[in-house]
Write a protein that binds this DNA or RNA. Structure first.
Lengths: 195, 195, 195, 195
DNA sequence: GATGAATGAGTCTTCATTCAT
DNA sequence: CATGAATGAAGACTCATTCAT
């Protein structure tokens, strides 16, 4: 593999990746056959295997791209904000917005995390994204803005809240992102008790 | 379908359900074939279709049973505790303990939630379990122990924290349940800020 | 695998094996598809995989059976003949007759010997058959009836003569078996020089 | 086809032929794809079909070249030796040496002989090489040095011994060529009986 | 001359489901 | 009730060959 591609080739590859991403996200990995993908693009079956080693490899690439995109969205939102707590908040809001824009990918992430073949890749991706949060949390602890508890645990808790609310209220109920994001932020900062 | 079963028949059915649950949980739904299930029990393929309409129906039943079991564990733990906040805490701890005892089912839940065919069933099950929490939250709000925010959102947030920590730290890292439960409870009650 | 088969099942298996043997022998391994085999028997594709693990395993079984059959023919012909030189002769004649009766298998043997996946099996089978010849040769050497040379080499030479004459004159030119067998025996016993 | 090639074109063609020969010999005809061949040479797929009509034609050419090379080796070794028996011996030794130098081609020959598409070509090639031996044998018969039997049969027997010993002891066991050649010569001249 | 791209029929294999016994 | 047998659509993947550029 590792082909040198002409511009036209690169374009085809992008097409395939994009189309497959959409299909995987909307119909699921298993229900989407390679035949679906190529016929959806109106090309021969061989084209797929010219650009990708296997359906599995393609999926891995889809996941990688999506995770990168999510992370970039978070980083873009955070910018160089100096306040670590504010950075956490911005991260949550950015994630929620991304989830909103990429609703169907949430499902795909969930599936991937549950399947032996893709779980490791998901884990790796999450660890990267998590490391950012951990950094903010640690700084906030130093500043005395957050109680001194295992930053890994705290970060995962944040992630859990964000993910669950996104899944439930955005993906499934079509709610307004901002409200949900507000709720997530509030819960993460103050829990049930409120300030 | 809806057969009247002899005691021996009921036993057979239970066996199939139990074995399938284990297989689905450990290897996944797709990788577990009906042939695996019946040959694992040393019976013919006809047996399966005598007791279950299809693989899909079986899965649905597996999911229903598991969700019931989780819910029962929560209710048993809560008993008739009068303090609503304490009830929330007991619920979290009971869930965490159940996740610990049924590690592999967590994966199955995640898969089921991501697959069109099973997502509705998962949703329904979760709604039932969530209704309990919502009740506790509402009471706590009335008592002024929890800030007055959408109880549905709050409950989902709790669920998100619990689920994420369970998945990450129990299922994947083999951590001690109690510590994780403590962390989940603390986060849910006080968020990042601490009391 | 390793199924317990009903009489009907055993019959089917035999059918498949026999039909596949014929096809492989007449058309070759690669040109014969699993689809050819099952459709030739008028059964569904699944039937094949009910009885055999893979096309490759089937081929291995075909080869094993054929080699066994050849060896049995040799042993039957030799019986308990006391004279070792006569035993060699009987072996050659029996082989030649078998090659005649199973012309197309000769080709299959040749193919199998040339293909990495089947060569080891062929080698093992040949070693078994060769051991017999080696025994006769050794005895004949002891009796002074054959010159004292490496029995392994001598045995292979015998095999080479027999095989080549069979391939050329029986398989390809449809010659009379007995004449060819006479020639092979004469050459093996006396070489070019004659007595 | 039948292109007029520039010197550079001829060189390309030779390269392709040489590389394909090596691949076919080492990995087999079927397992070697056209893509393997061209990518092994770092050229595009079009190149292949510029110089060769098809994979099959290429194989045919590979076989022809190899058979020619073998025959040339035999003729070179024989030179103008007047003694026909000696010529036979020299032919055997030359063949054995060639088989040693081109071990992997032996397999390819065997495969080709077993495949309908290539068998005729193999046969034709062998007939040519055999005609030489037949000539020597006939002369030897006239001189009374070899018993008066069908020269065709005798020649094939010689070829059978040589081929089998080469395949077994050189190709598979890495034995010394000279010893094997000695054994082949001795067997051909005197059979089992010895002089 | 040469390249990368595209084709599509064909390969082996899997598996939920049905059925005769 | 239960079994082993059978079905056949569907799946992922391969590869010789052709073609536009």
């Amino acid at each position: 593999m590792e082909r040198r591609l002409t511009p036209r080739g690169k374009e085809r590859r992008r097409q395939l990746l994009a189309f497959a991403t959409q299909r995987f996200a909307e119909h699921g990995y298993h229900p989407t056959s390679v035949a679906d993908i190529v016929s959806g693009l109106g090309v021969g079956k061989g084209v797929f295997y010219w650009y990708f080693e296997s359906k599995e490899q393609l999926m891995l690439e889809v996941l990688r791209e999506a995770q990168q995109s999510l992370r970039r969205a978070q980083q873009d939102a955070i910018g160089d904000e100096p306040d670590p707590v504010r950075r956490i908040e911005l991260g949550i809001r950015a994630s929620m917005a991304w989830f909103d824009r990429n609703r169907s990918l949430v499902n795909l992430f969930q599936f991937a995390a549950s399947e032996e073949r893709f779980a490791p890749a998901m884990r790796r991706g999450q660890e990267v994204a998590l490391a950012d949060t951990v950094r903010h949390v640690k700084e906030a602890v130093v500043e005395g803005r957050v109680r001194d508890s295992d930053p890994d645990l705290l970060s995962h808790a944040i992630l859990g809240v964000t993910g669950q609310l996104a899944r439930t209220f955005i993906h499934e109920r079509n709610a307004s992102v901002d409200e949900i994001a507000d709720a997530a932020v509030a819960f993460c900062l103050d829990g049930l008790s409120g300030s």
